[in-house]
């Protein structure tokens, strides 16, 4: 039985209304953050019990943003986080896809065991590894160019690489790539092989170009924890000039907290994440959906 056009319009309107409602619920915290970042503290608290909390009304200014840069070297922290996250993402895509490719396409004895062991690491929470890892990274050799001579010292603490290298290899990224590569017909490899391609050529010219959605997902899933990284830099970085953005948020929690500044800083560090998600959202959703079906 077909619905009447009137009923169908009502249904559509209802669905749309529900969507708007869900979107509004999801957007409220972000709107509140952005709006509050423009208000003085007294007004933030004063507006709290009315709809004005979500509207840029009253005493609006960019004073909180100016104060953020007085309290925190925000530009430095942002540059650090962008650099650390970008390098982690790019190297993560390369290393994890290579690993997944080997596990998916190559006939290597024991690869199932290796894959299982890699997956098993997913159940170990990082917090349990953090302190031993601090000890380990402090034992690693450090190479530094001093003029024309190469100096070797011990310990990676208080460096950029200690914030990057431990997070390049990622079991979940390997799993995502592996699942995606499994969906790419192996006949393509064989055809390429007949044309004289080696493993690396197959990887870079056949498989990877078809794995765009997986790459987008891995990019986002690697970027987010790198951007949000808090515990690890707290433990391994002492110099202010090397700190990432998330450590900066703690700068605001003094005895008398300036909530307007907190909101301004939170807005500043949220923008890059939102931009990244908007840029990749189609591929991200595609990949999550497809790996969910196939996984």
């Amino acid at each position: 039985m077909k619905n009447s056009p009137r009923l169908s319009t009502l249904n559509n309107a209802g669905t749309m209304l529900l969507r708007i409602l869900f979107a509004a619920v999801a957007a409220f915290p972000i709107v509140f953050m952005l709006v509050s970042s423009l208000k003085p503290d007294t007004q933030i608290f004063g507006d709290m019990s009315s709809a004005a909390a979500f509207l840029p009304v009253g005493n609006i200014s960019f004073d909180n943003y100016a104060a953020v840069f007085d309290r925190v070297p925000a530009a430095r922290f942002l540059i650090n986080s962008i650099g650390i996250s970008a390098v982690t993402v790019v190297l993560g895509i390369f290393i994890n896809s290579l690993c997944a490719f080997a596990l998916s396409r190559m006939e290597v004895r024991g690869k199932r065991v290796v894959f299982t062991v890699i997956l098993a690491t997913l159940i170990v929470p990082f917090q349990t590894l953090a302190l031993p890892l601090v000890w380990w990274v402090n034992q690693l050799p450090y190479f530094e160019l001093s003029g024309f001579s190469l100096e070797i010292s011990k310990g990676w603490l208080d460096t950029y690489q200690v914030q990057i290298i431990p997070f390049i290899a990622n079991a979940f990224s390997i799993y995502l790539y592996h699942q995606y590569f499994e969906s790419i017909p192996k006949e393509l490899d064989e055809a390429a092989r007949i044309d004289g391609a080696g493993w690396f050529k197959i990887y870079r010219q056949v498989v990877m170009p078809l794995a765009g959605p997986a790459t987008a997902t891995v990019a986002i899933l690697t970027f987010l924890p790198a951007w949000n990284s808090y515990l690890w830099p707290l433990m391994v970085v002492q110099s202010e000039e090397l700190r990432p953005v998330m450590i900066g948020i703690q700068y605001f929690f003094q005895l008398n907290v300036s909530w307007g500044e907190v909101m301004a800083y939170a807005s500043l560090i949220t923008v890059p994440v939102v931009v990244l998600f908007i840029a990749f959202q189609k591929s991200f959703i595609n990949s999550i959906a497809s790996s969910g079906v196939k996984g």
Binding site: Y142, T159, I164, L242
Partner: peptide
């Protein structure tokens, strides 16, 4: 893909250079 690879190599180089310039003060 060449672009991706080139970016990866650049990133690897960046890690090294970050390492070179990014050592914090002595403890």
């Amino acid at each position: 893909f060449t672009r991706i690879l080139a970016t990866s190599i650049t990133a690897a180089a960046l890690v090294s250079s970050l390492g070179a310039c990014g050592k914090g003060s002595a403890s």
